[in-house]
Design a protein around this nucleic acid. Sequence first.
RNA 1: GCCGGGGUGGCGAAACUGGUAGACGCAAGGGACUUAAAAUCCCUCGGUCGUUUAGACCAUGCGGGUUCGAGUCCCGCCCCCGGCACCA
Length: 808
Amino acid sequence: MSEIFDHKKIEEKWQEKWREEKKYNIDLSDSENKLYALVMFSYPSGDKLHIGHWYNYGPSDTWARFKKMQGFKVFEPMGFDAFGLPAENYAIKHGIHPAVSTRNNIEYMTTQLRRIGAMYDWDKYLNTSDPEYYKWTQWLFLKLFEMGLAHREKAPVNWCPSCLTVLANEQVREGKCERCGTDVERKELSQWFFKITKYSDRLLEGLDKINWPKSTKMMQRNWIGRSEGTTLFFEVAGQDETIEIFTTRVDTIYGATFIVIAPEHHILNHVTTDDKSKEVTEYIESVQNRSEIERITTDREKTGVFTGAYAVNPITKEKIPIWTSDFVLTGYGSGAIFGTPGHDQRDWEFATKFNLPIIQVIEPYNKEEVDLTKSVCSGEGILINSESYNGLDYKEGIVKITEELESQGKGHQSVNYRLRDWLISRQRYWGAPIPIIYCDSCGTVPVPEEDLPVILPEDIDLEKNIGSENSPLAESDSFLNVDCPKCGLKGRREVDTMDTFVDSSWYFLRYTNPHYSEGAWDSELVNKWLPVDQYIGGQDHATMHLLYARFICMALYDKKLLNFEEPFTNLFHQGIITKDGVKMSKSKDNVVSPDPFIENYGSDTFRMYLMFMGPYDEGGDWNDSGILGIHRFLNRAWRLCRGETDININDNSNKNLTSVMHRTIKEVTNDIQDMRFNTAISRIMEYVNEMYKAEAVNKDLLEKLILLLAPFAPHLSEELWEQFGHKGSLFDHRWPEWDDEIAKSETITVAVQILGKLRGTFEIKSGESDDVLVDSALELPNIKKHMEGKTLLKSIVIKDKLVNFLIK
RNA sequence: GCCGGGGUGGCGAAACUGGUAGACGCAAGGGACUUAAAAUCCCUCGGUCGUUUAGACCAUGCGGGUUCGAGUCCCGCCCCCGGCACCA
């Protein structure tokens, strides 16, 4: 009899068995007690499965198995987010067509995924690059188009010169491409957008209804960036033009000494006077040459030029100069501001640089003397130098001045958002083609539903296209040229593909029936099985995938295609596993492969070690030094259950161990429920240690151990369960329950303090009265010693816990 | 700059609504078994003082405070991680 369990044999045996019996392929027609447990699907870019994947998939499967044992009908699907740039780049690099390389990678990753031993329902597997799937991504586009939520527009967009495509706002981080880190450029291009801004308020409100991490909700709130304020109009003196301005501080209008409009503002050329036109043109050019990253740097000195024109303050009727400067952004508000240099840091810097007047119109609450030549006075206070509004609190000022503007038709209350529409066009090959045809007489024509999918052509030489800013699809004549579905005349296809985030914004719907051909999904199934009950994935998608998916569901709900608005009821983010303090990545060459660990210790040990390392939402730095400890522990449990230790297995009951068992069940249950896997494992270890101290244990104690271990080490547990003579899978057996009465330990340790300092402890039966506790405490020699010559003033007693004596 | 989350032994970490700080594990040291090693089992393990014991003092990033009692609550700082950032 071998002392060490043969992980390879056991894991292969059970994986094979689960697979053969289609153990976790479930019939969704019955949704009673349903639980949809979802993890973010994987991205086959050529990398193998790394520790990060395991950290996402292992613990989430533990949670799902626990739920299954609690009697839920758990649906745990897995698939591939197979379109996208990394896959395309990988394919180009290796000279293989992305369809082929993707297929190979998926095949390899599937084998790796199976080794985790998760309950994936492989019948529901999907692949977003499969025409069977992207047909319906295109269909989704058409639905949004019908609803007026997809539109093409010429707008300044983010261009990544390295990825050779435009990017959505969400994919630009600190002026750099989210994928490759290259500085993005601004380009004026006609692109397709999804009107996510129409849902700004609902996306905000919905956050109150879902159980998501606080920080993620906060990130989405900040990203949407709702701000309430006033829109007002300045007339341009002597011209038939008005400038629209959004402000949150209209109370400072008496301190406005200039106007600044963004260099890209459409009105700029109209208002600029002839004598200033050269300067303004030069300025615009200099701004265009500035990189986006340089432009958003806040500590850069302000630049700008005077346009020669003046605007009329709608409240004071004063004329103030109109300037242009790149610190005012085109993308936010109306791209124009009025400058109140006394009370805004940026305006103050601008006015100081260009010698514009600075007026104080807000007095701080503390009436402090302010010197506006030296620094700005931002913040709250009382209105001064504002004629009839003097003395008002700034908040009242906002209301009153907005009212006056409104009565004159010069302004109104308004709400502004930071959120921009979702730019979905990509000038790349490996994605779902946008199903649109351009016709000279009919204009923009959607591809009729019955003509879907618009198949991605294969006759394209991707290598030839390297470095070109045009979409690869434009190279294919057979793809490009098409008859207009409306008039039959010659038309051209849209050559851009869709952002892969479109693919992933609805995959969780398709999982319920990935081969359904009547529609994108079977409504009956989807409305029964969704929303997703528990979603687990990285927080890096907080303002991308997680926002887009919510938006898409809301739109589909409005189109009456779904009966729910929020796709993910509960969300949990696993932490990040770093290596030497930095995120693992191929480019840094610090990716740790899980494969050797699986080889040496097995999947049960490995996934359990990942959970034991620390809190699941915190991740941590990778260090394999403790993995042996988990392996040892599993061996200990294995030997104990198989009677390979000095501890006898008999039928006698053991009061103390039974109590420990109930306590363990209680704590482990609560810990797994809240994803506190590390402490759950500690509790099981304590339970095993406790049994090792005994001379004999009974079968029930051991069976409960196997059940508790099952979600963590599913293969080993199944094997032991079978060896205990049970027919059928352990995972069809119910999770153990506990009895609070039995779980209570008989004796407890009471801490005795004097003036809050620990001076001793004693053991006593639980539930004793305060008097008994005090008397027992006073018996302790060390307490007697400390009490000598002192008077006892008060005894503080915390039942079953502590006695504290106050003495003098 | 603003918004989150953190900072506890040599290391990963525990500590429920304020109540014995360091559970559980790693590493380390000692012992048992063994011809030997591995494996296994048992013991010790925050620091200083105390020969040992008993015990005392110090200790949860730093400085204050509230409390009988603070890792936990309050005020002020420092550092690390993540997000946002000229957003009007």
